[in-house]
């Protein structure tokens, strides 16, 4: 039983499928995220796939500030991801609301709505930083308990 669990843990770390949600970013972070997929950085070598659907995803990558309009969307997406899952907040806005934090419609960082596992600072963070953040998240992901049933 333990070997199976260990095996599953290892597989988790090797195959995080990523859902990228732009929560109101200026697109700076998003471009850097996409850069990770290009041949130069090629995150697929870590088994990371950019999926478009929370039901298939393990890792929620959020860029941008959370506002009153999209906080529900963010919560919904996180809710529709099967456990175990990790949330990575990306960029200054995703961490705290960034330069928009004083705006009347802005709530703040991602962790105001859903628990965040890894924070990647930067405006925007470099692709290396993003990959580093995701890989840090993988260790947490591997140890998480899944399958509550």
């Amino acid at each position: 039983m333990d070997t199976i669990k260990a095996f599953i843990r290892k597989s988790r770390a090797k195959s995080p499928w990523l859902l990228h949600f732009d929560c109101g970013s200026c697109n700076g972070c998003d471009i850097e995220v996409l850069a990770c997929l290009t041949p130069v950085y090629d995150i697929e070598r870590f088994g990371i796939i950019n999926v478009g659907n929370p039901k298939h995803a393990d890792l929620l990558l959020v860029t941008g500030t959370v506002n009153h309009r999209n906080k529900k969307v963010l919560a919904n997406l996180a809710e529709q991801m099967p456990d175990p899952k990790i949330v990575v907040a990306l960029g200054s806005c995703g961490l705290t609301g960034g330069i928009f934090r004083e705006a009347y419609n802005v709530i703040g960082g991602v962790d105001k709505i859903i628990p965040v596992d890894v924070y990647v600072p930067g405006c925007p963070p470099k692709p290396e930083a993003i990959i580093d953040g995701v890989v840090t998240g993988l260790e947490k992901f591997a140890e998480k308990k899944g399958d509550k049933s």
């Binding site: 599953i8 988790r12 456990d83 399958d147 049933s149």
Partner: peptide, 9 residues
């Protein structure tokens, strides 16, 4: 294998 370790949803 990872998918097998996930929650039933």
């Amino acid at each position: 294998i990872k998918l097998f370790g996930k929650e039933r949803l």
